[in-house]
Amino acid sequence: MDDCVFCRIVRGELPASKVYEDEHTLAFLNIVAAHPGHVLVIAKPHVENLYGLDDTLAAAVFQATTRVARAVKEVTGCDGTTIFQANEVAGGQTVFHFHLHVLPRFTDDKLLPFWQASAPPREALDEMAARLRAAL
């Protein structure tokens, strides 16, 4: 879709602090992060939500998410991770392009069910992206 923000990131029209990329997926730091290291893993083709994924793309996204989650844990030193994915407005979906959140979690961080967003400067995002790339 021409106006989809994630499609525009895939096409290189918008900047992103990339963490991982393969044929089917792209992972980048969330610009509205819960904690440093909060990564979004997306399907490269435009698929609105979980329901539209075929088996190959679903497998690719979850394999990428697993790799990214390991890197997030290693780099951030978090106590755990939450993998979050929402479908449709009622499910909390706000960007209608399939994606998963990889949230670094810390004991008693009180993030969920909602988190306080921050907007770190691009330099901080790029630095974290480099550290995560190195861990992969």
Results as ranks from 00 to 15, higher is better:
residue 41 V to C: 13
residue 41 V to K: 12
residue 127 E to Y: 07
residue 110 K to V: 01
residue 19 V to L: 05
residue 77 G to L: 05
residue 135 A to Q: 04
residue 66 T to C: 00
residue 110 K to C: 01
residue 103 L to I: 15
residue 39 V to R: 11
residue 105 R to T: 09
residue 107 T to C: 09
residue 49 N to R: 06
residue 21 E to Y: 07
residue 39 V to M: 14
residue 10 V to R: 01
residue 127 E to S: 12
residue 124 A to G: 12
residue 48 E to K: 15
residue 102 V to P: 11
residue 113 P to F: 04
residue 109 D to K: 06
residue 81 T to M: 09
residue 89 V to K: 15
residue 101 H to N: 06
residue 3 D to N: 12
residue 18 K to H: 07
residue 92 G to R: 10
residue 10 V to H: 03
residue 125 L to N: 06
residue 113 P to G: 04
residue 113 P to S: 04
residue 70 R to I: 00
residue 14 L to A: 10
residue 112 L to Y: 07
residue 129 A to V: 07
residue 92 G to N: 11
residue 55 D to T: 06
residue 106 F to V: 00
residue 108 D to H: 15
residue 1 M to G: 13
residue 34 A to I: 02
residue 80 G to P: 04
residue 37 G to R: 08
residue 79 D to I: 01
residue 18 K to M: 08
residue 68 V to Q: 09
residue 99 H to L: 05
residue 118 S to D: 07
residue 38 H to V: 10
residue 72 V to L: 04
residue 125 L to C: 06
residue 135 A to N: 04
residue 1 M to D: 06
residue 83 I to E: 11
residue 91 G to S: 05
residue 124 A to L: 08
residue 96 F to P: 03
residue 105 R to G: 05
residue 51 Y to G: 14
residue 124 A to T: 03
residue 120 P to H: 05
residue 7 C to P: 01
residue 24 H to V: 05
residue 113 P to Q: 02
residue 5 V to I: 15
residue 30 N to G: 04
residue 117 A to N: 01
residue 48 E to H: 14
residue 63 Q to Y: 05
residue 129 A to D: 04
residue 122 R to G: 04
residue 91 G to Y: 02
residue 48 E to R: 15
residue 73 K to M: 14
residue 3 D to K: 11
residue 98 F to D: 02
residue 53 L to H: 13
residue 36 P to Y: 03
residue 61 V to C: 14
residue 25 T to D: 02
residue 51 Y to E: 12
residue 114 F to S: 13
residue 110 K to W: 11
residue 57 L to T: 14
residue 79 D to R: 06
residue 82 T to F: 02
